[in-house]
Design a protein around this nucleic acid. Sequence first.
DNA 1: ACCCCGAATATTGTCGACAAAACGGCCTCT
DNA 2: AGAGGCCGTTTTGTCGACAATATTCGGGGT
Lengths: 230, 230
Amino acid sequence: MTLAQRKPSSSQPATLSERLLDQLQDAIVEGDIASGEKLREPELAKRFGTSRGPLRDALRRLEARRLVTTTPNAGARVVALSNEQLIELFEVREGLEGMTARLAATSMTDQQLEDLEELLMLHAREVGRKKGREYFRQHGDLDFHFRIADACGNELLRHAVCVDHYQLMRMYRFKHSARKGRPHRALREHRRILEALQDRDGELAEILMRRHIRASRDAFETQLHEEALG
Amino acid sequence: MTLAQRKPSSSQPATLSERLLDQLQDAIVEGDIASGEKLREPELAKRFGTSRGPLRDALRRLEARRLVTTTPNAGARVVALSNEQLIELFEVREGLEGMTARLAATSMTDQQLEDLEELLMLHAREVGRKKGREYFRQHGDLDFHFRIADACGNELLRHAVCVDHYQLMRMYRFKHSARKGRPHRALREHRRILEALQDRDGELAEILMRRHIRASRDAFETQLHEEALG
DNA sequence: ACCCCGAATATTGTCGACAAAACGGCCTCT
DNA sequence: AGAGGCCGTTTTGTCGACAATATTCGGGGT
């Protein structure tokens, strides 16, 4: 089975509501709709050429993915994406993705491990070529963290990481470009995690994943500090 | 701002959709609607005396809480709640609640710690009186795990634990009554976690919480094994 | 000048009806 | 007898209109 067949995520949305979900999600994640902006149903419905029914459906799903917050009788807003919320996201990811790494060590197939190794080699070339700028913009199948969660063998966990919290993380990456030098370090940390997975050492894989996410968070906080100073 | 204002969770649902959410949730968690059952919109709308609009809204929210699964053009079903899925839930909880315990150690107020200690004393009396049967049926504010997540100071994490996964856990408790003796052990483990929190030792609190959840899981698996044998 | 209050407007919540898709039963053909 | 296709029924997806609630803007009072 090829990779394309295994994941029908790229298939066309069967329903209007799902297409709206994709479109709105991209618009929010990529910043076309500003962070914190009010989402008025009539306006959006007209803009996307549908009625309010499917639109409300899409908004509810976006709420599940943490991209909008809804208050009764007052409508929906794009999530704030404050620095505090991003720190919160790092903490959630540390708990969740630590566990994905632990489980992936025993549930990933040899083929999946080979594919993952190949991905890291691809990333190495990208980092070298583009000075590491675009490394963090990879998403979905091209994202190291996504791949591990996707193969951890626990559907509930996979959903929490790859659906519920993933788009928020992607949104963060769009707003904050990584600091110089961080991509190289991140790549080294990814390699070490891969080695632990190849050794089928779940305990170590979890420790390394958690340290890796903490390092990302530290880099983010350092960046904030530098920006605050000048 | 007082605590009562901060948490209007006990307030009446402002909208029909929210009331439906509560009613359906209870019906599913308490077993009135069987696990795996098909949820037909016209039937449910008639049963609860509303139209299909708010009902669909409620179903979407239940999907976010893992209580129903929806497939396009094929409708919604109550979650399966197989033994495998329950194991998955234990694994998610270990990652998530481990982190809540770590954070709670630094973010809980002295008052909250006192309240938590009081709760455990209440639980001790309950376990002694009712032979521990009802201990695991406590929920919401009366649940030790819920309280810790609620006070961990990370809203994203709190939501993941207390909203997204909590009802599924409650559903498990309704179906599988705890083994004899487990409540006493669980209570002891809860006390140790509380001690770590009182010491403001986040690292230890996380370790103890994870071991506690793993112990619950082990008890569950043992129970399964015994049932399988006879 | 500031605050409070009320009407006008805009937005959300709810409903019933229509269109499209899936499901089920029946018949035919091999 | 079993498999496969056809047709009626049921269920889901979508739409537009109405009701209820929030928001905004302007006026009056202190």
